[in-house]
Design a protein around this nucleic acid. Structure first.
Lengths: 172, 172
DNA sequence: GCTATACGTCAGTGATGTTGACATATCTCA
DNA sequence: TGAGATATGTCAACATCACTGACGTATAGC
């Protein structure tokens, strides 16, 4: 290991920055990192008691939100491969948290539903996250909610945004 | 595989919800998921060309932000184990993106610095993220920035918040 | 009946995280 | 000065979650 002795910090030289002279909002970049980490931390801890992880949480959550959604729809939301989904989904089905029902119109499809246990677990997780969000909003006034929502929507890929907003707009 | 035939979607019964009758802001919960995914997606794609991943990005970023920070400080920020950090850090050092300098006052410490290549890469990534953030802010007015910042800070664990805000407040 | 679609599955791999144990150098304090 | 604390490095084993590629089965639709 070659080590040089630390003499002084080398500050960022703005002149070295690429053509884009746009300002860099370091605070917003880093706040998103820290906020996201803690936001998913609560559910992570609870799920580990069940032998589940973050991937199980996502499935559980979106099945709660869209009862009866198909595998293809879930894959489109999560943007992972069917092999990745299949592993966690199988575990959720085998442990009795999610139920698969063969489609009526199209028997190739599997419609996903929470079992009562799954719904209970998913609700407890979502309420934990709601508690954190509502606490944050309490600190700055409820008028912040639509502003934050528009900001977050603005961070989504433009090509995906319409689809996501359509998903959110659908009634439960 | 036991499958039940899908008859109808079972809507969420509010009466089944636990004692916490607090409202669940599904939109804010899910927007954070989608926004974060796309926000880290840009850097992910670029880093994969270098054989690096998201973990490398975090190190590169915080070394750019706090030139000279020590291993212990970085571990405190990232909240991972030193073994996890060591793997990616070693790669960044060996490929010439990060430099370790033995401390002057305390020779046990290693102060981390970006090499010129590391600084260039880290800057290009942070500017990509800045572009996305600034585009989102453009759509809703610059007065949104402090509101969003306070919201995200509010999502951070209360026990961590002070430390994080102190970190953000320090000048570069 | 042929082809496309929806889903399931096997096998191998990679990135990132973990725990536990132990080594080394250096600092601090009695 | 010597003992213990601290900062870092490293080995080994393992879990989770993602990937690619290939192939199988049932059903839909023309």
């Amino acid at each position: 290991m070659l080590l040089v002795t630390d003499t002084q910090a080398r500050p960022i030289d703005p002149a070295k920055a690429p053509a884009t002279t746009e300002e860099v909002p370091f605070d917003l970049i880093e706040l998103l990192f820290f906020a996201y980490r803690d936001f998913v931390g609560d559910p992570d801890r609870i799920l580990s008691e069940y032998g589940f992880g973050r991937a199980h949480h996502r499935v559980l959550h979106f099945v709660l939100r869209r009862p009866g959604l198909t595998i293809a729809e879930l894959l489109d939301i999560l943007q992972i491969t069917k092999q990745s989904l299949n592993r966690v989904l199988k575990e959720l089905v085998e442990t009795g948290y999610v139920e698969q029902r063969t489609g009526v119109q199209d028997k190739r499809q599997r419609h996903l539903h929470s079992t009562p246990a799954g719904e209970k677990l998913a609700l407890s997780l979502v309420q934990l996250q709601a508690k954190r969000i509502n606490a944050a909003l309490d600190g700055i006034g409820p008028e912040a909610a639509p502003i934050v929502a528009r900001y977050l929507a603005g961070l989504i890929d433009a090509s995906e945004r319409h689809k996501v907003l359509g998903f959110l707009a659908k009634p439960r």
